[in-house]
Structures are given as C-alpha cells and as structure tokens.
Design a protein around this nucleic acid. Structure first.
Length: 712
DNA sequence: TCCACGGGCATTTTT
DNA sequence: TGCCCGTGGA
C-alpha cells in the first residue's frame, strides 16, 4: 500500500528518518538509488515536504538525470521544483544569481581544464619562465589542490622555492580569471563557498529554501564540496548523505574519505543506516569482494549478502603474456555468447587505459565487436571548442582567451605581431581584447592589413551579438558558418574534416535539444550547461558489443559477466600506489571491480607483460591471494578456438589480396593485408564505411564474392 | 602553413 | 613501445 512497503528493512529505515542527519552506507548493488528516490518521494507524499525544499547533489549529470526521472515517475510533474544536480551545476545556479557580491559579472563563463591550462601557459610565458621547466600542468594541479582545500592565493603560504612560484602563478591566475570573467571548475565550488561564507543573507536565503539536502556518493566529496554542503544545510540539520566508504576511489583527485568517516562528528546526532543486502551478485562474488576489502583498515565496516544463492566459482587464469591473456578473454566471451549471452552482457575491466590495446586487438581478431569507454570527449574536440569559443566571446566579451583562440581561426590576417600589439593596447587601456579590436584604429604599430582585419573581426563579433532573438540552434549554425569554420573544413575534403563537420552538426542538434528541453534560447545557460556536461553521460545503448573500460569508469555499472585483467603486482595494485602508500585505495578499486559482476567473474593476469617497451615478470596480485581459495577455480584454456567454432583450416585457403569478401557483421569489404598461415592467418579488411579491421580468418566467417558460399 | 621529426612522457577522470 | 606536443624546416 505504501511506497515504502517495496523496500527492505534498512532501506525503509533510511527513508523514515527524515529529521536530522542520516548517513546511509550503501554497499555496492544494495539499491541505493531506489532508496534515495523513495525517500524523496516519501517526504513529498507523506511528510508535507514541498519539492522546492529539496536539494540533491550528485557527481555526474547522468546520476542527476536518472534520479530526476525516477522521482518524477513517483511524484509527478511537481518534481521539477527540486534542485537535483551535480555540485558544479548547483554552484553555477547559485553563482549566476549572486556572483556580483564577489565582484564578478553574472555573465561569467566556465573554463574547462584545457582552457585553464592555456591560461596558465600564457601566465608562465608572461613571467618569462621556461615552460619546459615549469609546465602549466604542474601549476594546474597545485592550484586545483589548493582550491579543493579551500585555500585562496592570499592564504597560500609555502616558502619553498617551488611553493613561492606556485603562489606567484596562483595569484596571477586568479586575477586573470576575474578579468576574463571566467571561473574554472574548482572555482565554481570555491566561489560558492566564499559567497555562502561571507554573505549571510545569501546563506540564509538558501538555507530557508532548502530544508532537505541530500548528497549522493558522499565518499567522493572533497573539502570544498563538504563546506558547500555544510553551508547549505540549515539549523535543522536535515542532511542525508549516501555513500560507500569501500568504494572511495577518487582520493587522488581530492576526494577526502574523512568526510564520510567523520560524518557523525560533523553532524552530531547522526544516525547511520547500513544497506548490506545486495541485489546484484551471487554470494560467491560477494564473498570474494568482502574478503578482499576486509584487508583495509580505514573503513566503517559492512558485509554484503544476497538471497541469490551461491552461484558459480570465480575463474582464475594466468596467461604467459598479455596477448594470451587478451586471447583468453576473447575465448571466454566467444563461449559465453554460444551459451546465449549477449556481447553487451560482457565487460572487460582493467586498471590502466594502456591495457586496452591487447584486448582490442584480441577482440578485433576474433571478430568480436567491442566498445571502448573513455577517450576524447565530445565537448573537448577541437572543432567543437572552436565554435564554442566564438559563442563564449559573444556571450562574454571579456573572455580574451576564447577570443585569442579564434582570432585567427580561420585565418584572417591577424598575425603574431598584430596580436601582441592588440594585447598590449588592451592592457594599457584596460580594455578587453574584443574592445581593442574595435578600436584597432588607435592601436599603434598595426599594419594596414591587420588594422582592417581587426575591424572586420570586431564587426563579425558584433553581428553575432546582434542575433539574440533567434533560436539557439540557428545562432550556433550561423556562427559556425559565418566564422568560416565550416567552409574551412569543407575545403579540406578529408575523412577527418568530414568527422569534424559532423561533430559541429551534432553541436547544432545539441543546441536544438537544449532549447527544446530547457525551454530557453539563452546562450549563457547553454554554455553553462555545455561546460558541465560530458558525452559519456549521453552514451546510448545502441550498437551492442563487449564493454572495454577502466575499473574507474565501471563504477556504478553492472554486467552479467565480468573479466578483470592485469591482476599483477605493479599493475593492479599499481606500482605507484605502493610508493605512495595508497594500496588501500587500490583495494577498494578491486572491490569495485569484483562487485560489477552479477553472475560470472573471471580474473586474469599474465606472467610477463610488456609495458613502456620493457618486458617484466610480475607476480600475481595480492588481491587474488586475498580471495579464499574455495571461491576460485583455475581457468583452463578453453577448447582451441577453431574447434570451438567448427571452422576448419582449409577454409582459410583461397583468400587473396584485393579480394572482395563479406563479413557477417561489417558487410562487404576488400582484403588489404594477409598475415600468417593456416590457423593463424590474419586477414585485414577495409570496409567502404572507412573502417579497417583485422580478423583471424578462421573466426571471421567470411563469404567470398564469386561463389556466395561460406568460404574463407 | 603544413608536415615531419624527435623528445619526453607514460595511473585512475568528472566537472 | 606508442602517443602527443612542440619545433623547425621547406
């Protein structure tokens, strides 16, 4: 009858404690999101809480969207009054309304890591330091860490040689950001905290408004985020933090486990609820996970269990080298598919991205489609950033960095010298670069050509600015066209340029989608949204194929069959963690890896592995030894692949270069390379779509053109 | 303005 | 070993 009847006892408990602080320790697969959404729905439906009084933080947009959808399914359209978002998006929202108190203009733009690196580089050059010796990334890390600790340039106090220099750059960097009217990711949190700390009326306003604050993935919060939460939680102390100390794997980027470990101290009277019943995995898998993580000392402690039953033993396979390890994975998947699993049920997880190569090759050879998670993100692609840079300048004329990015892209005759003059002029006159362009006539030392080009550019920007009434998608399209970016790419006539054009098209569609969904053509809102969104959030479930990703990327996901590769000392746990004394975090990572599996778990490693050009022999990972023997069975190489598929070696005969063949999945293509003999023949095929793939011929089930028979 | 070469570097990633 | 970035030459 009641919503809460659908929950188990601890889950219900987590929903019923609605006054005062609660910490929900939600083990992997324990129905965390379900509990959170039901808690909110319950408060709205039965406790007289208005949706507008609810503020919920997540770490990713994906999580925010999911939570929103699930709650709106339970409580209906009123859910739109809730604030559910990432720390960063909530911060942007608060700052847009209040940032003037801090001396910024409310049309600020958000700089991503690349933008901020470019700015730092500019500063290092301005100081005439050698940027080999003083790489921008070094400052970027130091500054980010300072901001995460909530340390301003004024509070920076490190008298060491290195520290002094960081302090110098940090001061200049903040000054420049403010002049540019830009905030970097860390600033979003940092400035929000400053605002809430110094402006009591602002703090009171939000505290009165949000009577109930929820934080998901609490173990991943850093100090600045913790302070942001603290300031937003009102005197009633209605905070519900949900997290799992055993899944804290982002310590290296500032996440501070102390936030979760010391929750009861920070929020006196806090109740702790443990969700230990797991709805995902078999008991064998959970026993392994429990056994591993038990070796950690820094934890609150909990033990997962399930009603699902024992399940199969975990398979362990030690390969001679990483190629055989990958090949074993291909065999496992091949065999699983024969048993009826879909490729998308299977995931291969590894510690470092470098390990993906061997797996990719093996999948390609076995003709298994796969999708690689990670890599360059949509909004970080050059062409997308180029168009966005125009948009940013249009929105925020102070954004010199974005203007510098596009001032000569496409080329329009404002060379190095002219740029330098313009910048000097802007600095002397205390103008933005955009204003300097407009006043090019007054700039000394500009060639007639540069002068004209500058005025043209200023005029172009002015025209872009004058299109406020139009739809967002039209504005984006117009800017991409009129800037000459599209033209430039069209002229290149290469595959790559076509891809880039397509990406710009995608950006335009994205603008349209944004306008439709958000109901506003506001450029600032769009830019704010774009800078806080990654496209991994948008990954659609199309295509199918085995998942290849790092354990970090796999957090929050689940798969019926999981293969964890590279379980060797030095790889997983990573050598670096041993030096730095962070093996406990590696162990939590192992815990995350293991608990991704629903039914089948394979652990693999290699006796020797070639890394960074050196072949090393690594002993098996300590994490394997931490799993009780009784849960493990040694993996065997499965039947030789050719027998498994029934393909006979003579079928490979008759392949030749230039021949047209048909692949069951990729269609017709042309053989462009043949390597090896007999069972080992590897055939490389170019497909008209542009893809070039290699397969082991005996696996590939190729059909020849002339006969149409299953040959090859 | 583009390409080619070489040096340096090499966990994990979201916002 | 492979990739990315920056530089320098044509």
């Amino acid at each position: 009858m009641s919503l809460l009847d659908e929950l188990n006892e601890p889950q219900r408990q987590a929903c019923l404690v609605t006054d005062g602080p609660v910490l929900v320790l939600a083990g992997a697969g324990s129905g965390k999101t379900r509990t959170l959404t039901y808690r909110i729905a319950h408060q709205i439906q039965s406790c007289g809480v208005h949706p507008g009084q609810i503020l919920a933080f997540t770490f990713t947009n994906k999580a925010a969207r999911e939570m929103k959808n699930r709650i709106s399914a339970l409580v209906g359209p009123d859910s739109r009054f809730m604030w559910i978002g990432t720390f960063h998006s909530v911060a942007v929202r608060i700052l847009r309304e209040n940032i003037r108190h801090l001396g910024y203009d409310d049309r600020f733009v958000v700089y991503d890591t690349d933008d901020s690196k470019a700015l730092l580089k500019d500063i290092v050059r301005e100081l005439n330091w050698d940027d080999k010796e003083w790489p921008p990334s070094l400052f970027q890390n130091a500054i980010s860490r300072a901001k995460n600790r909530f340390q301003s340039p004024a509070q920076w106090d490190d008298p060491s040689f290195f520290g002094e220099r960081v302090g110098e750059v940090y001061r200049r960097y903040q000054k420049r950001l403010k002049d540019l009217n830009a905030l970097d990711f860390d600033d979003l949190i940092f400035q929000t905290v400053s605002l809430l700390e110094t402006r009591q009326e602002v703090r009171d306003h939000y505290q009165r408004r949000f009577r109930h604050v929820l934080v998901d993935e609490y173990q991943d919060t850093n100090l600045a985020q913790y302070q942001m939460v603290r300031h937003l939680v009102g005197p009633e102390g209605n905070i519900c933090a949900v997290g799992d100390d055993d899944q804290s794997i982002y310590g290296w980027r500032g996440a501070d486990m102390r936030n979760i470990l010391e929750f009861q101290r920070d929020f006196p009277g806090a109740q702790i609820v443990r969700l230990e019943e797991n709805y995902r995995s078999t008991q064998v898998i959970l026993d392994a996970a429990n056994a591993v993580v038990k070796h950690n000392h820094e934890r609150l402690g909990k033990e997962l269990w399930t009603r699902k039953g024992e399940g199969d033993q975990i398979r362990l396979y030690r390969a001679p080298d990483e190629e055989s390890e990958a090949w074993y994975a291909a065999e496992v998947i091949h065999e699983a598919v024969r048993r009826g699993r879909r490729l998308s049920d299977c995931a291969i997880l590894y510690r470092t991205n470098a390990q993906s190569r061997a797996f990719e090759m093996a999948m390609a050879r076995a003709g298994i489609t796969y999708r690689l998670v990670g890599g360059k993100r949509f909004y970080e692609r050059k062409e997308v950033k180029d168009v966005l840079a125009y948009l940013r300048v249009v929105f925020n004329p102070s954004d010199d960095m974005s203007l510098l990015r596009v001032i000569n892209y496409p080329r329009r005759g404002i060379g190095d010298v002219a740029q330098r003059r313009l910048r000097e002029f802007a600095q002397e006159q205390n103008l933005s670069l955009a204003e300097a362009l407009q006043q090019a006539d007054a700039v000394e030392g500009l060639s007639a050509q540069a002068r004209r080009a500058s005025q043209d550019m200023a005029e172009l920007l002015g025209r872009f600015r004058g299109q406020e009434g139009e739809s967002l998608a039209d504005r984006v399209r117009h800017i991409a066209e009129a800037s000459g970016i599209m033209m430039q790419l069209r002229q290149e006539r290469t595959r790559e340029a076509d891809d880039r054009l397509e990406n710009i098209g995608e950006l335009i569609s994205e603008a349209k989608r944004f306008e439709d969904e958000q109901g506003t053509p506001d450029l600032g809102e769009f830019l704010g949204w774009v800078s806080l969104v990654s496209d991994w959030d948008e990954t659609d479930e199309d295509g199918g194929g085995v998942w290849l990703m790092t354990v970090h990327s796999a957090k929050g996901l689940e798969f019926p069959l999981v293969i964890v590769g590279g379980l060797e000392e030095g790889v997983f746990p990573h050598a670096r963690s041993m030096d730095e004394g962070t093996v406990e975090e590696e162990r939590r990572l192992m815990y995350v890896a293991v608990t991704r599996a629903e039914e089948e778990l394979y652990l693999t490693n290699a006796e020797t592995r070639t890394m960074l050009g050196r072949t090393t022999a690594n002993p098996a990972s300590r994490f394997i030894k931490e799993i009780p023997e009784s849960l493990i069975s040694r993996g065997q190489r499965l039947a030789a692949p050719d027998r498994a598929t029934g393909a006979a070696s003579h079928r490979v005969e008759g392949l030749e270069l230039g021949q047209k063949v048909r692949h069951p999945r990729f269609g017709w293509g042309t053989i462009v390379a043949l390597r090896g003999e007999g069972d080992d023949t590897e055939v490389t095929i170019a497909f008209p779509g542009g893809g070039v793939r290699s397969f082991l011929a005996k696996f590939a089930q190729l059909t020849r053109e002339e006969t149409g028979l299953s040959g090859a």
